[in-house]
């Protein structure tokens, strides 16, 4: 099959993630949208790996690293959201404006 539909679907998933980050009010939902963006990048890596039929499998290895770092990011991110919730009694990102002048 042609590679164009896969790349366009990945681009669409990326834009959906951007929309989610800008629109969502709950911090956990913003993290979910970030996962969508990382997933679209993974699709691109694996698709280009298959397109180039790379013998060193660089695309697949990088997508495995991305998945690992994304798991670390989710752990830290949710711990931060938990701390914010303990201190502010809310997970609404509009109310975290302490550093706003």
């Amino acid at each position: 099959m042609s590679i164009q539909p896969i790349l366009i679907a990945a681009a669409a998933l990326f834009s959906i993630g951007i929309y989610g980050i800008l629109v969502r009010r709950n911090a956990v939902m913003v993290l979910l949208s970030i996962e969508l963006i990382l997933n679209s990048v993974n699709i691109n890596f694996v698709a280009f790996n298959a397109l180039l039929s790379d013998v060193m499998l660089n695309g697949q290895i990088f997508s495995i690293f991305i998945i690992t770092v994304a798991a670390a990011e989710v752990g830290i991110g949710l711990a931060i959201v938990l701390m914010l919730f303990r201190n502010r009694e809310t997970a609404n990102i509009n109310e975290f404006d302490l550093m706003k002048w």
Binding site: I3, L7, A11, A50, L51
Partner: peptide
Amino acid sequence: LIQTFDSTVVI
């Protein structure tokens, strides 16, 4: 993407 890539993926 449409302008740059038009190859086919070998499954």
